[in-house]
């Protein structure tokens, strides 16, 4: 689905992504973990077209998508969410969702004035769809609230909801669980699994909550210092010595192992 080949992203002398190569298989929920500063979010930003890579390629279904704008990638079905949830603050939650689909009738000035009926019909259909999405995410009661006023966790759900307004192929979720309480996190996890099973969405998830990763993701890719360190099933990864070392440093390794077996 997505193949990343020897990707580099340098900020001056700092190599945020330093020769990462990885593959995200179609239909998978791939986890991307690693200590802070490992380059996960930078990798996302490069894949999703927010930052141009210094070198390397990104392929989607065999097609080179390196350097395409986020907008062009959106049309190819590649969507993402942000670590700190983004929203259109001056609009209601429902309006936020209704903004997502592309090529709406109301987008041209001509239609705005001369095809009011067609626009109204489409808006009704979109509002209905938005309400279904909100129900799926169990936040129907927020539909008419200003998006700037809902909680951080609810914003995360709203971001996930945005990906459900269109037929996405692959969705990159950046710390979908950050600042989200347990119950909400389970709701998000269930939503991800359902989208994966029912709609065939492929996911790539950055997350620090290892329970969440363990429950959802297979395979899991570990990054450290801008490189891919290890790859495999969640259980396999947690056994991997290099990974534990990257997270906890050398000295703590034995202690953790002792703790894990006890």
């Amino acid at each position: 689905m997505i193949v990343v080949e020897d990707l580099h992203k340098h900020f001056g002398g700092f190599h945020a992504v330093d020769g990462a190569s990885l593959e995200i298989r179609k239909g998978s929920i791939t986890g991307l973990i690693g200590p802070n500063g490992a380059g996960k979010t930078t990798l996302f930003n490069v894949i999703a077209g927010r930052l141009p890579p210094t070198s390397g390629r990104v392929l989607m279904d065999g097609e080179d998508i390196t350097g395409l704008t986020p907008h062009e990638l959106f049309h190819k079905g590649l969507l993402r969410t942000f670590q700190i949830a983004h929203e259109f603050g001056s609009m209601t939650v429902r309006e936020n969702l209704m903004m997502v689909p592309a090529r709406q009738h109301g987008e041209t000035l001509w239609n705005t004035w001369f095809r009011r009926g067609a626009i109204a019909a489409q808006e009704r259909a979109l509002a209905k769809k938005a309400d279904e999405v909100l129900e799926f995410l169990t936040i129907s009661h927020l539909a008419n609230q200003k998006a700037s006023q809902i909680s951080g966790g609810q914003k995360k759900l709203l971001e996930l909801g945005r990906t459900m307004m269109v037929e996405a192929k692959i969705v990159f979720l950046d710390e979908v669980g950050a600042g989200v309480n347990r119950t909400l996190l389970n709701t998000i996890g269930d939503a991800i699994v359902r989208l994966n099973k029912e709609r065939g969405y492929t996911f790539c998830v950055i997350e620090h909550d290892m329970d969440f990763i363990g429950r959802l993701c297979d395979p899991v890719i570990v990054m450290a210092e801008g490189k891919v360190l290890a790859q495999g099933s969640a259980a396999h990864i947690m056994e991997n010595e290099a990974v534990i070392e990257a997270y906890l440093g050398r000295g703590l390794k034995n202690k953790t192992k002792a703790g894990a077996t006890a």
């Binding site: 999703a48 927010r50 704008t69 986020p70 907008h71 959106f74 969507l79 993402r80 942000f82 983004h86 929203e87 259109f88 603050g89 001056s90 609009m91 309006e95 903004m99 997502v100 689909p101 592309a102 090529r103 709406q104 009738h105 109301g106 987008e107 041209t108 000035l109 705005t112 626009i119 808006e123 945005r162 269109v166």
Partner: peptide, 27 residues
């Protein structure tokens, strides 16, 4: 009230997010 106008407001609210939506930035 119009979709075009809302696209403009969305762009003004959060450009990053607007670029990740079906909003055509050039339009």
């Amino acid at each position: 009230k119009t979709r075009s106008g809302k696209s403009m407001r969305a762009f003004s609210d959060n450009e990053d997010l607007a670029l990740l939506s079906g909003i055509n930035p050039e339009r």
